[in-house]
Computed example of a mutant assay.
Amino acid sequence: MNTRSMIFTLYGDYISHYGNKIWIGSLIRFLHEFGHNDQSVRAAISRMNKQGWVQAEKIGNKSYYSLSDRGVRRIEEASQRIFKLKPEKWDGKWRIFMYSIPEEIRNIRDELRKELVWSGFGTMSNSCWVSANINDSQVQDLIEKYDIAPYVDFFVAEYKGPHEDHNIVEKSWNLDEINQKYQEFIGEYSQKYVIDRNKIQKGHMTDAECFVERTKLVHEYRKFLFVDPGLPEELLPEKWLGGHAAALFSEYYKELAEPALRFFESVFQEANELNQKDEAYDVMDHPYMIE
């Protein structure tokens, strides 16, 4: 599992609910549970800092990291989509995003494509992206972030034929492929859910093990945010498995939630208490700092 991606998962599922700031030592401790070493964690959080996802703060001789405003927005978007059990009601309109970005800034074009997929867009034709989601503010953020206003156009429109709205879906996304990914998730995690539920009920699973499994569960389910456009129910095929996967995720998550949280809080609180003691020693060692 990618270290940077795991850090995003930890921020979204835990850290953002506890003041949004964490000591690098605690972050390393949590990532050790998944086999990541100190160096990989420091390198990943440094990259995230340079990319504008997190911001660094020095307190005494210790480094802390918190989500930037951009990071907070991304985590909030992800959380809303991850824990949404049913698709939102469609307003019957399509968001159409078109661009013609110069070759000399094609690196921006590549990044933009990833962001559009994240926001639920699909490619109807070359450089013409469509979405059935109400994501107008996200699009405006992208235009400002990449400073591409001269090269893009954005429309909100109704489809007037000659085909049905489902025809746009078929052109823009491979729903069979996405449904297959949901089938694989259900096949693997329905079995794991039953096994872990029995272990927890019998007291055969530690808090640390529940923390690892809950984090892995969120980490795997979060991947659907990069492939599933989150289409409204009206546009989904009859045998769509997204709802089944969402229900399974929700039940499994609830089963692991309490013991996983106990482990997180124990490590998080222990680090805070240790750091407070260190700060007290610092003040005693440097009395001139006391006003």
Rank of each mutant, 00 (worst) to 15 (best):
S172Q: 12
L85Q: 06
G122D: 02
L236C: 02
R42G: 07
E144L: 12
Y18I: 04
P150E: 09
L67G: 02
H286L: 04
E234W: 06
R47I: 13
I7M: 01
P102T: 06
G60D: 02
N107L: 09
G92Q: 02
Y221L: 06
E144A: 11
N174A: 08
P287G: 02
S40C: 04
Y64G: 06
I105V: 02
A78Y: 09
Q191C: 11
P287L: 01
W173M: 13
I101K: 10
F97I: 12
K86Y: 12
Q201G: 06
K160C: 14
M48L: 08
E251K: 03
H166W: 12
V283L: 13
S125E: 13
P232I: 07
G187D: 15
I15H: 05
I22R: 11
K84G: 09
L231K: 11
I168M: 06
A43I: 14
E220L: 11
D207V: 05
I290R: 10
N135F: 09
G60I: 03
L256Q: 00
E220R: 10
S68D: 03
E273L: 14
H244F: 02
K277N: 13
Y99R: 03
I15T: 00
Q55E: 15
L274F: 06
E209S: 07
A132S: 08
R74T: 04
K89L: 09
V283W: 15
Q138D: 05
D228A: 04
N198S: 13
H219A: 01
E279H: 04
E177M: 14
F224K: 05
L116N: 06
S137E: 05
K277Y: 15
F263G: 02
E57M: 12
I195Q: 14
K86W: 07
Y146D: 06
Q80T: 10
S137F: 09
G120C: 08
S26E: 11
Y253Q: 03
I82E: 01
D136H: 08
W118H: 05
D38S: 09
K50L: 08
K223T: 07
I143H: 13
D147W: 09
W173F: 15
D285Y: 08
N2I: 09
I134Y: 11
A56W: 15
H166D: 06
K171W: 13
N135L: 05
Y189D: 02
W173Y: 15
E77Y: 15
S5C: 01
P237W: 02
E76D: 12
F97G: 11
W90A: 02
K62S: 15
E270M: 12
R109F: 01
F34G: 00
R74M: 01
G19R: 07
E213G: 03
Y252C: 01
K160Q: 14
H36M: 05
A246M: 01
W240Q: 00
C210E: 03
T206M: 03
N37A: 01
S66P: 10
A245Y: 09
V169R: 03
G60E: 01
G122K: 04
L112P: 08
H17F: 14
Q183C: 13
R29E: 13
Q39I: 08
E184S: 15
L142Y: 00
G12N: 07
E177Q: 15
F83R: 07
N133Q: 10
F268H: 10
E213D: 10
F30N: 14
F83Y: 15
Y252L: 00
F83L: 12
N198Q: 13
